[in-house]
Design a protein around this nucleic acid. Structure first.
Lengths: 372, 372
DNA sequence: AGACTCCCCGGAAACGTTTACAAGTCCGAG
DNA sequence: CTCGGACTTGTAAACGTTTCCGGGGAGTCT
């Protein structure tokens, strides 16, 4: 009697039942053949044929329910419009795709609430794992992280003891590279346009900046430090304030968006870059190369960090018993026209330096020289 | 006998069975309470309590299998690094999130194969619908589109007869806006840096450019047209070739990435913008405002198109029997410093115009004037 | 010829949820 | 007192897949 339906209902989309019925075999056999797990030559032929005839496509959800895998990996970043996250996302996507999975992208706006919310929702198990790049770290985060029901890899600083996979860079060292470079070029009034100090990158870069100046014996004029957020507009405005107030001969910016904003402010204020004011950004995104003049920028290896984070995540998904790992990516400095004393900026013929600190030839710093 | 297990297995994560057992009710009652579908006060209390105690979270996959909904919407665009898609994505994400769904982003690189592949994979039903913004349309697309198993909304041009929800703009009219503006400003040697002609936007803009010039009675010097792709680097190189070859007094670029590249090429070649060469981009992305001088740009309403596409998709998901709809978003022109004759570009004091076509005051075109 | 191995197959359970259906309870109206 | 309606509850089926397990057939070795 009809306790078992052999044909799917009105909906019409073929299921494994449809295929099995058409091939005259059981659903078990059909499933096995469709997954390449054996079957006699005859069975294989019949099932393949039937599947092709009805245009069978397995239902990903039903498969997920059975296998406890969704084939999805989530990425949560603060600002999808920031090219540094685009670079990171591209690297992650490459790794994730090569494992046959897909990437789900969340923009958190850097809000802690959004991120803990996301972490909580992981319990729904709609993804196999998540890569999180927070700019603020709170106890709420840490709590949600340690008892997350699915693997999470964090890109960015995390407290030492947190038992969470973690890929980080040393952005204080990155700031130091930039300061060394500027000091070696003879700059002494180095301004710093930072993001919010209540973010991890903001705080670390601030500390790194002060430490680097101190190491060079340069006293810091507090008017040379300005804070906005990590966006273009705020960076431009913060830089404008700083320029008007403190007359810097160099500007270091906490990321490239800020740096492009600062470039806008400098040019609007009639300052020549790099002759009067050298400019260095951070993250070394494609934006740095789009600016004119091209921006020197501290690379924090965002692509490498993304790739590594994705690899760690996949490993942990495969083997959840792994101990927590912590990886580092070293920063480096890409020197381009915006801070290269020798560079010729064609459309503004450089006159003799009008006064103040004369430009000195660049000292040998351990950085990449980027051809113009 | 134990045909039915009341406790979940070793895994440990609570299911509705766990909650029901703990509350001493059936799973049906538990499910009803958890979904707010009635139950006596006493039952509700017991179930809520039990759920809280064990930390129950419903499994999204099982729920999807039952409800035939995943709560996911896919977006496929050519280049996730192009700010125009970021703007579109933001608008879509807002709509999608407000319906309680999540957005899955795919980057296709503009490859037809990737897109048809994606469409095919929709049959797996891992998303409830998809928004596709292709730059090439082939018969393979159309075929895959019409018998897609889940709703698809296309952003961009589509053949008239295609029975697919579609949100489009008139980019030829957008090009015309820009040409009108430049001609009104006295420019006659207007160069055009386009993307590939085998793409829909490339072809449409090329035709629009030629038509607009013809309408003004300006003969087109073919050396003033150059093709790259829709990226920064190719745009910069194409613009450099065009500048060296044809000495334009204005440059219209098929998108803002190209325009920023062209700005780079112009400044590198020592041309002043806008005094010697006026520059207009397309898409009116944030990039246009980041450039110095800020770029005039033809807005194609990417945010509006994205929002509308998302709304159409949600409507269709709710009611698949709707007839195919087609919506239009009108282009507009944002005039900024890069083509505003009156603008003062502070760091390069504008001399009297050296010769050729003298600058004329801007004619009254129906465009937004954007404050500097 | 019998026993053993190997392979293939089908039935049924399982993944975790929602929901149709039937049965039970309670209460008020007639 | 009985009947019917409103409400609640539990059983079981369903979503579409994978997989465990046992049965059976064919082949091989003794």
């Amino acid at each position: 009697m009809g306790r078992k339906r052999l044909q799917p209902p009105v909906d019409g989309r073929p299921t494994v039942h449809t295929v099995a019925a058409r091939a005259g075999v059981s659903i078990a056999s059909a499933s096995r053949v469709l997954n390449g797990r054996g079957g006699s030559a005859e069975t294989v032929r019949k099932v393949r044929e039937a599947a092709a005839e009805v245009g069978y496509v397995p239902n990903a959800i039903a498969r997920s329910l059975q296998s406890q895998r969704t084939g999805l990996v989530a990425l949560a970043v603060a600002d999808i419009g920031n090219p540094v996250y685009v670079a990171m996302m591209r690297a992650i996507e490459a790794v994730v795709a090569s494992s046959g999975r897909q990437l789900l992208v969340h923009a958190t706006g850097g809000q802690v609430a959004n991120e803990t919310d996301l972490l909580r929702r992981l319990a729904h198990r709609y993804v196999d794992g998540m890569i999180l790049s927070p700019i603020r770290i709170t106890d709420a985060h840490l709590g949600a992280l340690v008892d997350s029901p699915v693997p999470v890899v964090v890109v960015g600083q995390l407290p030492e003891e947190a038992p969470v996979d973690n890929v980080r860079t040393d952005s204080a060292a990155g700031v130091a590279l930039a300061v060394d470079h500027l000091v070696a070029a003879g700059r002494r009034r180095i301004g710093f346009v930072n993001g919010p100090l209540d973010t991890v990158p903001g705080a670390v870069r601030d500390a790194g900046f002060r430490a680097a100046l101190a190491r060079h014996g340069v006293a810091l004029d507090e008017r040379l430090v300005e804070v906005g957020d990590f966006q273009y507009a705020a960076g431009r405005d913060a830089a404008a304030r700083l320029i008007a107030r403190a007359d810097p001969d160099a500007l270091l910016c906490a990321n490239d968006l800020i740096a492009v904003g600062a470039l806008h402010a400098l040019l609007s204020a009639g300052r020549r870059v790099p002759e009067e004011v050298a400019l260095v950004g951070m993250d070394d995104t494609e934006l740095a190369q789009m600016a004119f003049p091209q921006l020197s920028s501290v690379s924090l290896g965002s692509a490498a960090r993304g790739r590594r984070a994705a690899e760690l995540l996949l490993e942990r998904i495969a083997d959840p018993s792994l101990p927590p790992r912590r990886e580092h990516v070293a920063p480096s400095l890409a020197v381009r026209a915006s801070s290269r004393p020798g560079a010729v900026v064609r459309h503004v013929p450089a006159p003799a330096h009008p006064g103040g600190t004369p430009p000195t030839p660049p000292a040998p710093v351990s950085v990449r020289e980027v051809l113009p």
